[in-house]
Design a protein around this nucleic acid. Structure first.
Lengths: 196, 196
DNA sequence: TACTATACGGAGGATGCCTCCGGTTGTGCA
DNA sequence: TGCACAACCGGAGGCATCCTCCGTATAGTA
């Protein structure tokens, strides 16, 4: 599950051994706790707090994520990856209900992202590629789910994945949107998306 | 020039005396230095650094701006105010060249804002009204300059101030835009804006 | 089991935000 | 002008947070 090394860079001579089991476990737990703490406390979240939540020393935390921003990035990367795998796992379902399910996931993702948007903004600032590649990945996932619904004739043909995430993402980012409101609005979007 | 008290709140019983001259001077200098330092070093800028640049102790800085975020807000408010007064001062000029001049000012403003966007984001987060009211002010200023150019028949009639700032602002915010590029692009926008 | 590379963890250095208070100075009034 | 005092200045230092360092513990291998 996590054979490669922390931040995503490749080591010089091909990592000889896989990551140790405890290290792997801890890494996952840190990311998970970080997501929870960031979501709950936004930019107030401290590294010590996250370490404590993961039941891990700060030293361990910093081994895996040398800078605070690396942790933010890791959480975000996992979220994006989650949307991609969600899209893949929905391949089996009916085209339209897969689209609905994916968009519901996307709304939850976008909603959660709002709470640590300031953090994320900084990550984007230092790593311009992150924003771009994530955008592409999500648009790709959206596209694949949408395409099936379009082929089956259930979704209108004159939109693409990028349009969809712009529309729904923008809606979720609006300064004072609640999750309930967004889920309600999604219904309208879906109605509008339906071919007639 | 600065009779009222710091952050923009009104004191209980009408401020008896105006602000002392030295205090007023220092306040201005702090804002000015803060703008420079924020622009140069973004979110890295420290309060000590800004105080030093303004040739003022940190104590003085904190008297005027109790929290870092108050300083960010003050800088931003001045910028916005600058755009409004710029619009007003251009009333005398020819409608079209006034529009050009104002948009050039707006591009510079938007470009500069990018460097401390992370800071600003936090300010918006804590003070939702700031974002909204600023937006309105700028749109108003844009509208007033645009309206004259429309009345004189030089600018096309199917846009308004909000459209304009959305278009040009968005252009400037793009992650890797340089000032030169933006000024160059502005020429295209202006061509597109011209009535035919 | 014994050995080694790897990981753990928390004390502490460095830095940055903000407070506090003794000394100074501008301002209104006589 | 000269006085009295409110308002202001400035920087040492408290406190929190990010991050480093290194002695100790442990997973994986022979």
């Amino acid at each position: 599950m996590c054979k490669s090394v922390g931040v995503g860079e490749v080591t010089a001579v091909e990592t000889k051994r896989p990551m140790r089991a405890d290290a792997c476990r801890n890494r996952e737990r840190v990311i998970e706790s970080a997501r929870a703490v960031f979501t709950a406390r936004g930019s107030e979240a401290s590294m010590e707090e996250i370490a404590k939540a993961a039941e891990v020393g700060v030293g361990t935390l910093y081994r895996h994520f040398p800078r605070r921003i690396d942790l933010v990035e890791a959480v975000y990367r996992e979220d994006v990856e989650g949307l991609v795998t969600l899209a893949a796992s929905l391949q089996e379902q009916e085209p339209w209900s897969a689209l609905v399910a994916w968009l519901e996931g996307f709304v939850r993702y976008a909603q959660a992202k709002r709470t640590f948007l300031t953090e994320l903004h900084e990550a984007f600032e230092k790593n311009a590629d992150l924003a771009l590649s994530s955008r592409e990945k999500i648009a790709g996932a959206a596209g694949s789910v949408l395409a099936r619904a379009q082929e089956s004739g259930e979704a209108r043909a004159d939109v693409d994945g990028a349009d969809l995430m712009q529309l729904v993402g923008g809606m979720c980012m609006a300064r004072n949107a609640t999750l309930e409101q967004n889920e309600r609005l999604l219904v309208f979007v879906l109605d509008g998306l339906r071919a007639r």
